[in-house]
């Protein structure tokens, strides 16, 4: 028996109106369990749309997506989404924000308390559980957002430019931490970013999307060993991969 891919795209196309040009066209891709796949591409090429299809928040116009062999809508319980903005509820404390998903699934406060404490520990925010989001820095907010996404113990993590609003130093640190967490929990990640360097640093594979309509132009396998650290960024192999991917991205732009 062959293993079921964690996320499978079969001829996926998406158009938002019957007479509109397709946003995504003929996407074929298979993502195996434990892979970290980044998607890079110019703005407006359909990266967010692609993630929303996987999350079952929007339906394919043609083709299909299978998450662990299931329709995206039915697989939601094993999937979490992290948005570009931390999208925290400002009227809830950090703790209550992290507890949100568990609460929506009907778990009581007592049940969630232990899980929330552990998650805050994991992302290094144990001290600020009682604070409100407005008291946190951008990086801390994003950690809360990630902790919230991890609360439901997802197998698949969808991240839509989660660190785009952060300064470079914070972003680098968050990248390293994300890899550390993945080392512990081994999710499959679909990660959208504008930054080729970020994509190469994080991923086992980088997918370059070409615009109008959005389609897979190239795939770059990143064979740098995990765990990756700050030193990985200084290696020649890393530079070579960043250059190669940047070049492919520029070509995709030109069409």
């Amino acid at each position: 028996m062959t293993t079921v891919p964690e996320v499978l795209f079969k001829g996926v196309s998406k158009r938002f109106a019957a007479n509109a040009a397709p946003v995504l066209d003929g996407i074929d891709m298979s993502i195996e369990r434990g892979e970290f796949v980044s998607i890079v591409g110019p703005s407006g090429c359909g990266k967010s749309t692609l993630l929303k299809l996987v999350a079952g928040l929007s339906a394919c116009t043609s083709g299909e997506i299978a998450v662990n062999g299931m329709q995206p809508k039915n697989a939601r319980e094993m999937v979490s989404f992290v948005f570009q903005d931390a999208t925290l509820l400002p009227w809830r404390t950090v703790e209550r924000n992290v507890a949100l998903a568990l609460e929506l699934e009907g778990r009581t406060r007592d049940e969630t308390a232990a899980a929330v404490a552990k998650l805050l520990e994991l992302v290094g925010l144990a001290e600020v559980g009682k604070s409100y989001p407005r008291q946190l820095s951008g990086g801390m907010k994003m950690r809360v957002s990630i902790a919230r996404a991890l609360a439901t113990r997802p197998r698949v993590l969808l991240m839509d430019e989660p660190f785009a609003a952060l300064d470079e130093m914070t972003r680098d640190r968050m990248n390293e931490e994300l890899l550390r967490l993945r080392g512990e929990q081994n999710w499959t990640v679909l990660f959208v970013t504008h930054s080729v360097a970020e994509a190469v640093f994080l991923s086992s594979r980088v997918v370059v999307l070409a615009p109008h309509p959005g389609r897979v132009a190239h795939e770059v396998v990143v064979d740098l060993p995990y765990p990756r650290t700050g030193e990985t960024r200084e290696s020649e192999a890393f530079d070579a991969l960043v250059n190669k991917t940047s070049k492919l991205l520029r070509e995709a732009y030109r069409g």
Partner: peptide, 9 residues
């Protein structure tokens, strides 16, 4: 945020 809520059914 609406989508986040929908994600968690």
């Amino acid at each position: 945020l609406v989508q986040l809520f929908l994600m968690h059914n």
